[in-house]
């Protein structure tokens, strides 16, 4: 049956598309924003704001 051969090609094509979409966006993001902003996330922000951890 031919259908499955087409489906195989479709799967290859879609995979490439998803991959490309991520790569392009990755490149655009990295060139638009500074490294400082991108890697500014710090652990424990929530605790610092909401919890005092005193009983």
């Amino acid at each position: 049956m031919q259908t499955w051969n087409y489906l195989e090609y479709a799967a290859w094509g879609l995979s490439a598309l998803f991959g490309l979409a991520m790569l392009v966006d990755w490149f655009r993001t990295d060139t638009t924003y500074s490294e400082d902003v991108l890697t500014s996330s710090r652990e424990g922000e929530l605790e610092a704001m909401t919890e005092e951890h005193k009983v």
Partner: peptide
């Protein structure tokens, strides 16, 4: 949302 006092400008979304 997701940002905080320790300097996070872009954090994960809650």
């Amino acid at each position: 949302d997701g940002m905080g006092p320790k300097g996070t400008k872009v954090g994960l979304l809650r």
